[in-house]
Design a protein around this nucleic acid. Structure first.
Lengths: 204, 204
DNA sequence: TATTTTCGAAACGCTATCGTTTCGGAACGC
DNA sequence: GCGTTCCGAAACGATAGCGTTTCGAAAATA
């Protein structure tokens, strides 16, 4: 690895810029995000920003990748227990004003920028999704869910209603909703002849 | 009713402005929507726009109210038939690039403006929701669904996954998804002891 | 006909953001 | 110590949207 001459780029500035970008998306959304504001808030010259990223989009893509939400990876012994624990973590995200604003701010950006859409899908959304997928697959392996279960469909049946209520209907994004979605998936994918075993409630 | 003196306001201009606002939200989204562009495209002076609406937000709220999507109100005799027909209409909306762009353009606006959020909820989203609610309630009256069914939850279990896939995962918003969501609701809300009767498929 | 109001079009001054450039100084390799 | 590169800060000209105002013409009432 050759070492370039001259002063090396400041790691602190780099991280401060990414951190500030996320903070500002939370506060004002993606569309209202300006390079001037990022540089000023990060205590950095604009030239320093443009030296590293050629556009706002490129900066945001990298910043999104840096959001590493703490997603649990539970193994309670039952699909219902695992899924509900993951759903509670998602409820907490929607309940946190900062995270919620970030999400709604990114939705508009996703619709207009494919790179940003991919970053969100493989980033913090993808992490949650992967954890839920593992919980479902363990449930299938245990025989709690049918082997032919459409996992992608099941995932969207659980994540979708929360997102929909949060962004569109404005209805409560609460435990009852999470429970209803999980129960619907468990009942729909229950092995033939098995009776449901609602240990946490029944739904809808 | 007294008649004001002077030249009356042009109904044509009024409607052209509202129509153009919708068209431009589809094309560029809400954030990039400008009064100059609306006036120019509508063939109208900016003063004419500002004479009627004091802000872009007020204009958009009224324009949203004018979107009267043709929502079917089916009565096929079964909850499954009715719901699937409504879901197919929703699929068609997502499949239409114009409507889809409009929806994603409005999501960002809803997050930042409560009047706009209300207009969307009571407007074209509310119409679809009301039709689905009627289908569910007929199903309850017929005994296809339990009387204690949480109708609001059931509605969100069906609408949410489509919205989620469309905006976030980018997965297919197709018949299989609609069917999976409807089947999950029907199974979850089936009366005790009844066997499901999947006439259109099984899911997930 | 006289008066009033709206019409489309254009220009106004103002502010904000863009991406670039310049500046003196600081941090590195050689 | 020298050359190079990056640093934060500031200013640059350009573009764009804001909301308002002005203009002569058109459309209504009285």
């Amino acid at each position: 690895m050759t070492r370039a001459p001259g002063r090396p780029r400041s790691k602190e500035a780099h991280e401060a810029i990414l951190r500030t970008a996320i903070t500002l998306i939370r506060e004002v959304g993606y569309d209202a995000l300006t390079m001037d504001a990022i540089a000023a808030r990060a205590g950095v010259g604009k030239a320093t920003v443009y030296r590293r990223w050629k556009s706002r989009e490129a900066l945001v893509v990298e910043a999104i990748g840096g959001i590493v939400a703490a997603v649990p990876d539970p193994d309670t012994g039952s699909a219902e227990g695992d899924l509900m624990q993951l759903m509670r973590a998602t409820l907490a995200m929607y309940a946190d004003p900062a995270s919620a604003a970030l999400l709604s701010g990114l939705v508009a950006a996703m619709a207009r920028s494919e790179p940003i859409a991919q970053a969100v899908r493989t980033g913090f959304v993808g992490m949650r999704r992967a954890a839920m997928r593992r919980a479902l697959e363990r449930g299938i392996a245990r025989g709690e869910l049918r082997a032919e279960t459409d996992v992608e469909l099941a995932l969207d049946l659980m994540s979708g209603p929360l997102f929909w209520r949060f962004l569109v209907t404005g209805g409560p994004v609460d435990q009852a909703l999470a429970q209803g979605a999980v129960q619907a998936v468990l009942r729909a994918s229950a092995p033939d002849g098995s009776s449901p075993h609602p240990t946490e409630g029944r739904a809808p």
